[in-house]
C-alpha cells in the first residue's frame, strides 16, 4: 500500500510517503512558507522513492482543525492531485494526528489534544488508542474556551499540542477537581504528515475514503463573520467590509 500524506495546518509543513508501512518524510517548521514549500517537498519525496503518482493508492491530508489558510492549502493541493490522477482521498483530523505523533514519541495511548485556536480558544479533543490500532474519540473535537472544555471522566492522560503551551494555567485549573491525571505534557507537539500517513493506512484498509471534491477542510470555528445591524449613513460611508481571520 502506498499513500502520500501532506499537512500544512500549523507552523509545521510536512509531506510523507508511506510505502508498505515504511514512512519517509519531509518536515519543516516554516510559518507562512507552506505555499512555497509543500509541492517541492512532495516532488522530492516522490523522486527519492522513485515513485510516480500512478503507483499511489491514495492521498491523505490534515483536514484541520488549524489555521484556516493552512488547511485550505492542504485541501487544495490534495484536491488538485487527486482530481488529476483519480486518486481517493483520506482526510485526517489534525488533533488525531497530534495523538499519533504523541504515541510514536512516548507510546502513550490516551491523549488530550489541544491546538491554539487564537481568540482565546483551543481546538480540543481526547483520543484513546484501541487494540485494533485505531484512535477513538473519547471527547469529540471542538473549538472551545480552555476554561470550560469538556474532559474525560477519569484516567491517566498525556497532554499534547500548542493549546497546552498557550493556556496551561486555565487548562490545569479546569482539570484541578477532575479525576484526570496528566502523566506527560508535550506542549510543543505539532501534527505531522508522517502521523497522518499512518492513520490513513488504517483508514484505507477500512475503505474510509472520499473523492477529490469531498477533500474539504474541517474548520470547527464556523462563526467567522457577523451580519451587520442596520447601519447609519455615516457608517456606510466609512467602509462596508467586515472581515475576520482565524
Amino acid at each position: 500500500m502506498k499513500i502520500l500524506a501532506i499537512d500544512t495546518a500549523t507552523e509545521a509543513c510536512s509531506a510523507a510517503l508511506s510505502i508498505d508501512n515504511e514512512v519517509i518524510t519531509r518536515y519543516q517548521l516554516a510559518p507562512r512558507e507552506h505555499s512555497r514549500l509543500i509541492l517541492k517537498m512532495i516532488d522530492r519525496l516522490m523522486c527519492e522513492a522513485e515513485l510516480s503518482l500512478s503507483a499511489l493508492d491514495a492521498l491523505a491530508f490534515g483536514q484541520g482543525p488549524g489555521a484556516f489558510m493552512g488547511i485550505r492549502i492542504a485541501a487544495g493541493v490534495t484536491q488538485g492531485i487527486a482530481y488529476a490522477r483519480d486518486l481517493p482521498v483520506i482526510p485526517v483530523s489534525n488533533l488525531m494526528a497530534i495523538a499519533e505523533v504523541t504515541r510514536k514519541q512516548t507510546t502513550a495511548e490516551h491523549v488530550l489534544c489541544a491546538i491554539d485556536a487564537r481568540m482565546k480558544e483551543i481546538y480540543w479533543a481526547a483520543y484513546q488508542y484501541n487494540n485494533q490500532g485505531e484512535w477513538m474519540e473519547v471527547i469529540d473535537e471542538c473549538v472551545c474556551d480552555p476554561q470550560t472544555m469538556i474532559y474525560p471522566e477519569h484516567g491517566r492522560w498525556t497532554a499534547a499540542g500548542t493549546g497546552w503551551a498557550s493556556y496551561i494555567d486555565s487548562m490545569t485549573d479546569r482539570l484541578k477537581n477532575s479525576n484526570i491525571e496528566i502523566e506527560t505534557l508535550l506542549p510543543a507537539c505539532l501534527p505531522s504528515a508522517a502521523a497522518i500517513a499512518r492513520i490513513a493506512c488504517h483508514n484505507y484498509q477500512h475503505g474510509r475514503m472520499v473523492n477529490a471534491e469531498q477533500a474539504q477542510p474541517v474548520y470547527l470555528r464556523n462563526n467567522v463573520a457577523s451580519k451587520p445591524r442596520q447601519k447609519t449613513f455615516m457608517a456606510l460611508l466609512n467602509g462596508n467590509t467586515i472581515s475576520s481571520e482565524s
Partner: peptide
C-alpha cells in the same frame, strides 16, 4: 449579500468547495 460586502474568510471557504466541481 446579507453581510453587505465580501467577507474574505467566507469567500475562501466557498472557493475551495466549488473549484473541482466547476473544473469538471
Amino acid at each position: 449579500a446579507e453581510y453587505g460586502g465580501v467577507v474574505p474568510e467566507l469567500a475562501s471557504r466557498d472557493h475551495i468547495r466549488y473549484l473541482i466541481p466547476l473544473i469538471k
